[in-house]
């Protein structure tokens, strides 16, 4: 359908008006996000201690990151955390949504608030609380011992095998409620006629879930996935408060190493390069997640 000249002019005007409304926010975005990011990209090609003149080193910082076993392991740990923060959270949330289904949930307002709370708490508070809960003589181990599972009790956050999964599970705890609230809201919006017609066609609970529920909450699933993946890659506060990268380097993640390099070792070029790599990773993953859903 081709547009008349007047229609085209009108469209351009509304676009200009729209841009004008966006301008203040765009300004903040550029000043506080884009400009520092571009500066970081520039820094990542230099060797700088924060005070002396910068020295151009080209791709040396990136090379040292890629060649370093410690840094590669950190990115691996970040992917493990994605498994917990995003995959596990989504799996449990979808299971629960499948069980609850489209039935009316009583006391949704109170439930929503309670479920959302872990997501709203700052990670520092979450980290301190969970550090206490998972302490060698803390409540979790006490509970295990009380029910006769004392053999399973250990220093969760200080165990070489269990530290990273423990941090991952804390992340799942943080994000599960948030995922549930969004997914339930999405399910509530699916017209009941679709469920009725599915039932008429002889669909069981599982078929109903796959054919009606899942496609219906597609957008919510995308939002939750993108946010939980970025949360997994960005998490610095939780690591800093619970394990500080330990034991050994079992829970080192890129964001923590950026902090360490920048503020304690004084290697700002390497820190900037890590930051850029992390940003690129988040961008790529976000695009990958958003693409298939965009088509629909």
């Amino acid at each position: 359908m081709t547009l008349t000249l007047a229609a085209r002019r009108q469209r351009r005007r509304s676009a200009a008006v729209g841009l004008a409304y966006l301008a203040p926010a765009l300004l903040f975005y550029c000043l506080l996000l884009l400009v520092p990011f571009l500066r970081s990209v520039y820094l990542s090609f230099t060797s700088w201690d924060g005070i002396s003149p910068k020295q151009w080193v080209g791709l040396d910082n990136y090379r040292s990151i890629v060649e370093s076993e410690q840094y590669r392991a950190a990115f691996l740990h970040a992917f493990v955390l994605i498994g917990f923060y995003a995959v596990l959270t989504m799996a449990v949330a979808l299971l629960l949504v499948g069980i609850i289904g489209s039935s009316r949930v009583r006391g949704l307002v109170v439930l929503r608030t309670a479920l959302f709370l872990p997501y709203v708490l700052t990670p520092v508070v979450t980290g301190v609380a969970w550090r206490w809960l998972l302490a060698p003589d803390g409540p979790v181990n006490a509970l295990l011992r009380a029910v006769g599972l004392g053999g399973l009790a250990r220093a969760w956050l200080a165990d070489f095998t269990w530290a990273l999964p423990s941090v991952g599970l804390i992340g799942t705890w943080m994000l599960l409620g948030f995922a549930l609230v969004l997914l339930i809201a999405g399910v509530q919006r699916i017209p009941t006629e679709l469920y009725e017609s599915a039932r008429i066609d002889g669909a069981g609970a599982v078929r109903e879930f796959l054919a009606v529920t899942l496609p219906g909450i597609r957008n919510e699933v995308t939002v939750v996935t993108v946010l939980s993946v970025t949360a997994a890659l960005r998490n610095f506060d939780l690591i800093y408060v619970t394990t500080q990268g330990g034991p050994g380097s079992a829970t080192e993640v890129p964001s923590f190493l950026v902090y360490q390099q920048a503020f304690f070792v004084g290697n700002l070029g390497v820190a900037a390069a890590m930051g850029v790599l992390l940003t690129v990773l988040i961008l790529v993953l976000s695009i990958v997640i958003l693409r298939p859903w965009r088509k629909g």
Partner: peptide, 14 residues
Amino acid sequence: APELYPTISSSFDK
């Protein structure tokens, strides 16, 4: 050296 403290921290446990 600047990197010694974090290195001792992580290598000691290992």
